[in-house]
């Protein structure tokens, strides 16, 4: 575990929850379905610990939507779905017959948009916290091992914020992982920003 001050942790959890909450509203609008989006826990882990942390899915081919950003803090955020959850989510969103083989265009488009909505909401919360504008890349859809989604992008060991997002669509529950990789110094910036906000 990365030693992070409890206050920062709580603050970050709050920020993520706020973002996710907004995303749920957006998804409700978009899909005309009652979607509950929760983040039951947020963890801070090192990159080396990722395999262990995601042991249940690290051997699987995951679907991920990735959004890079830079500005006061640099890094990338990603929403990762295990294959079954990805398929199930798309089925529920699009109302298609279950697809069990490789993800096709429908899946890519829908998952990209859902990921885009959630990540945008979360990142917007971070933007609000920082009072500073972040520059975002265009969101990208990726498939592959979870390690391959992040490995190329991270230059040095840095803490990873891992938040489990739980989608409840009607009676079904689908899990995805919101993962934020922040470059060195990002936590300091965030910590400062949190302190400033609290003082305000």
């Amino acid at each position: 575990m990365i030693p992070i001050k409890e206050g920062l942790k709580d603050a970050l959890k709050e920020i993520i929850n706020i973002g996710v909450g907004k995303a749920a509203g957006t998804l409700n609008d978009l899909l005309n379905k009652h979607i509950i989006l929760e983040v039951p826990n947020v963890n801070f882990i090192s990159l080396e610990e990722m395999d262990h942390a995601f042991s249940t899915i690290h051997t699987l081919t995951v679907s991920a939507v990735r959004l890079k950003f830079r500005g006061p803090i640099c890094g990338l955020s990603s929403l990762v779905f295990p294959p079954e959850s990805a398929a199930k989510l798309v089925d529920m969103l699009v109302g298609e017959v279950p697809i069990t083989d490789d993800l096709d265009a429908i899946k890519v488009g829908a998952l990209s948009e859902v990921g885009n909505i959630i990540l945008n909401a979360v990142m917007a919360s971070f933007g609000d916290l920082l009072d500073s504008r972040l520059i975002f890349s265009i969101p990208v859809y990726m498939e592959g091992k979870i390690s391959s989604v992040f490995n190329e992008e991270v230059k040095c060991p840095t803490p990873v914020i891992s938040a489990t997002a739980k989608f409840t669509v009607e009676e079904h529950q689908i899990y995805g992982e919101i993962i934020l990789l922040l470059e060195i110094g990002a936590f300091d910036v965030l910590s400062t920003a949190v302190i400033n906000k609290l003082e305000i």
């Binding site: 957006t26 609008d29 978009l30 699009v94 829908a110 948009e113 504008r133 972040l134 890349s137």
Partner: peptide
């Protein structure tokens, strides 16, 4: 003008990340 469009586009003007409108949805 509906929130599903405007609601998502509006944050852009505050520096929010790009918004995707997939062909399927």
């Amino acid at each position: 003008a509906s929130s599903r469009y405007i609601g998502r586009i509006r944050p852009l003007f505050n520096g929010g990340p790009p918004v995707l409108f997939s062909s399927h949805l």
